[in-house]
Simulated assay, not measured.
Amino acid sequence: MITLKGAVVSAKIKEEVTELLRELAGTIPRLAIVRVGERPDDMAYERGALKKMENFGLQAESFSYPADISDEDFQAEFKKINENPGIDGILLLRPLPKQIHERDIERMILPEKDLDGISPENIARVFAGESEGFAPCTAEAVIEVLKANDISLTGKRVAVVGRSMVVGRPLSMLLLKENATVTICHTRTKEIEKTCQNAEILIAAAGQAKMIDPSYVGADAVVIDVGINVDNDGNLCGDVDFESLNGVASMATPVPGGVGAVTTAVLAKHLVMAARKRRGSRA
C-alpha cells in the first residue's frame, strides 16, 4: 500500500503561495484563528495552522475564549475580529458550544474573510459549482491530494462517509465538479460496508476514530482519511484503521501527516487570495 503523504502536496501549494505573495509588494497577510473552549482536535488543528502560516511566511493570531462564554459576548468579540481592517481572513473552529448560535456567526462573517467556506454566500457558490469564493479547506485539501497524486476523478465511483456541512456535503459537491460519481454514506445508510466496498475511492469524514477497517474497503481502492480524533492514549488518529489496510487498499493517507497538512496549506493559500482581493488584485 502506498502512503499518500501530505507534506509533498503542501510543498506544491507553498510554491503557489510564494508566487501569489510576490504580487503583494511586501504586505504580509494576517489570519485570525477563533477558538471557543479547549477541544483537543481544535487545539491540534490550531497548532498546525499557526505553524503552517509561519512556515509560509504569513501572520496568524489566535483568539481563544472560554467554553462557557455567552452567545451575546461571543458575537460582540467576533464582530470586532470581523470588522478589523488589519485581518485579511478568519478561521472559526467548529463546532461551537451549544449556547452559541452558530448559524448567526455564519451569517455574520464577511464572505471575503471567510477562508473556510462557512458563510451562506460561499456555501451557495460551492453547491452551484462556481469558482468564486472559498470552499471549506478540508474539502478542497482532499481534491488537492488526489490531483497531486495523479488520481483521476472523472467517472470514478467515490463514497464519502459523513454528511456534515463541514466536510462531507461540500466535498461531495467538489467531487461532482470533477465529474466523479458520488455516494454519500451516513449513520442511516443500510449495508454501509457493501456500499463503501463498491467505491474506487473511499473518503472517511465521519469523525469516529478508526471506524474504517478492511470490511469497508474494496480491493485496490484509494482511501482518504479526513478524520482528526484523539484515542484513549491521547494520540491523534484518523477515521481509518490505517495499518489494517495493508494488502487491501492500493493507496491511503495517514493521520497525522496526511490531509491535515494539506488543509492548513489550503488555508494559507486562501489567506493570500483574500489579501490580494482586498487590495484589488485578482487571485
Rank of each mutant, 00 (worst) to 15 (best):
E200A: 06
Q208D: 08
M251V: 11
C185T: 02
P254N: 11
K177H: 12
T264S: 09
T181M: 07
I203F: 00
V167Y: 01
N235P: 06
A275T: 12
A249P: 02
P256N: 08
L171I: 03
R276F: 06
T189L: 09
A249W: 11
Q208R: 14
G260K: 02
M273S: 06
H186Q: 10
V166H: 02
T189W: 10
K210M: 14
L174A: 09
T253E: 01
V230F: 10
G218V: 00
S250W: 14
F242S: 05
D239P: 11
N235M: 11
G227F: 07
Q208P: 06
A275I: 09
D225Y: 03
K177W: 02
A204P: 11
S244M: 02
I192F: 12
V259H: 02
P256Q: 04
D241E: 13
M251D: 04
A180N: 04
A219V: 13
N229R: 04
A274L: 12
A221F: 04
N179D: 14
A199T: 12
A180S: 05
L176K: 14
L271N: 05
V166N: 08
V230P: 12
N229V: 06
T253A: 07
A221I: 10
K190S: 15
L202W: 08
G238L: 06
I192Y: 08
G257R: 02
A206C: 12
V240D: 01
T195W: 13
K269G: 09
K210F: 13
A252C: 13
A275Q: 01
R276Q: 07
S244V: 01
C185D: 07
G227C: 09
T264H: 02
L175I: 04
M173H: 14
C237L: 10
T187R: 13
E191N: 15
L176P: 12
A204D: 08
L271K: 00
L202H: 00
V222S: 04
A252V: 05
M251K: 15
R169P: 12
D213Y: 10
E200W: 13
D231G: 13
V230E: 14
V262S: 05
E193Q: 15
R188T: 15
N179G: 07
S172C: 03
V217D: 03
V223E: 01
T183I: 00
A205P: 00
P256M: 05
K277F: 12
V240G: 05
G168D: 01
M273F: 11
G218R: 07
R276S: 05
V167R: 08
L202C: 07
C185Y: 00
S172W: 04
P254I: 03
I192G: 07
V259E: 03
V248R: 14
E191W: 04
D233F: 11
H270F: 00
K210I: 10
